[in-house]
């Protein structure tokens, strides 16, 4: 009854209303940013005195925006890959392992989340200077991986705990190798957890600014660092136009995925 939309009665409308309000709450800043990107006021006065495309022109006139976005994308993609891979393994150990102190180990895996990033940034920077890793992609990815991994571990253990291991065992009984059973039965079943882990890891790296300031070099600048300094110094709506372009790109990608899916079905 509670899990069937039709049989919820008036509760249905309460839930729909809450979800509608939250969706509006989520949309408000995005729409606001999109509106500002066409406004003529550099000081974000709203409604703007007039409308303009000049912030988009400025964005494309300065190649450093696209370059830093591309750097961010590469780093975030690498971080996502490693974070989900390593997190998946760690989660198997945490959920399926039979050793004592599993909860302690889990707490240990989560500590990078608690420590304010600036402390990790100074510590890692000094450490990387000795290893010669500062200002390198490797150093950047390692630093972001440390803060992204806890999200993977949390999301995947959560999914794995909800998965009934007897299904995997059944597959083995039916003749699958244990590995095959993991890949063909368990992984698809915890797909949602893997997806969450990937998104959280990607965003942790993509939006991270404090570690990035320390790991950056003249040839390795990420988008958040550019946005951070530009917002502090200039507050220019170029950032609004950059964000709007990214949102548009995301919508296009989503539509593309939806179209491809439809194509497969029909």
């Amino acid at each position: 009854m509670l899990l069937s939309f039709e049989r919820l009665g008036w509760w249905k409308w309460v839930l729909v209303a809450i979800t509608g309000l939250v969706t509006a709450f989520l949309l408000l800043p995005i729409l606001f940013i999109a509106a500002l990107s066409f406004g003529s006021s550099q000081w974000l006065i709203f409604p703007p005195p007039s409308w303009t495309l000049k912030w988009y022109r400025e964005f494309f006139a300065d190649p450093r925006w696209l370059e830093s976005a591309w750097t961010s994308l590469q780093i975030a993609a690498l971080v996502t890959l490693f974070s989900v891979g390593i997190g998946l393994c760690a989660s198997f150990a945490l959920v399926r392992g039979k050793f004592r102190g599993r909860e302690t180990l889990k707490a240990f895996f989560l500590t990078p989340m608690i420590l304010p990033v600036v402390v990790l940034a100074v510590a890692l920077y000094a450490f990387f200077l000795r290893l010669g890793l500062n200002g390198t992609v490797t150093g950047f990815v390692l630093a972001h991986l440390v803060v992204a991994l806890p999200f993977s571990v949390l999301a995947i253990t959560n999914a794995l705990e909800g998965f009934d291991k007897s299904i995997e065992d059944a597959a083995v009984l039916c003749g699958a190798s244990p590995l095959e059973a993991k890949f063909r039965v368990t992984l698809p079943a915890i797909g949602h957890g893997l997806f969450s882990a990937a998104i959280f890891s990607f965003l942790t790296s993509w939006d991270e600014v404090v570690l990035a300031i320390f790991m950056a070099s003249p040839t390795l600048q990420t988008l958040p660092v550019r946005i951070w300094t530009t917002l502090r110094q200039d507050l220019t709506p170029v950032i609004a136009s950059a964000s709007t372009l990214l949102v548009l790109l995301t919508i296009l990608l989503m539509l593309l995925v939806a179209l491809v899916r439809k194509g497969f079905k029909s």
């Binding site: 010669g132 200002g135 992609v137 070099s217």
Partner: peptide, 12 residues
Amino acid sequence: AALTAAVSLAGV
């Protein structure tokens, strides 16, 4: 540029 940065160790 990123590759060069990755290869060159300490110096930028």
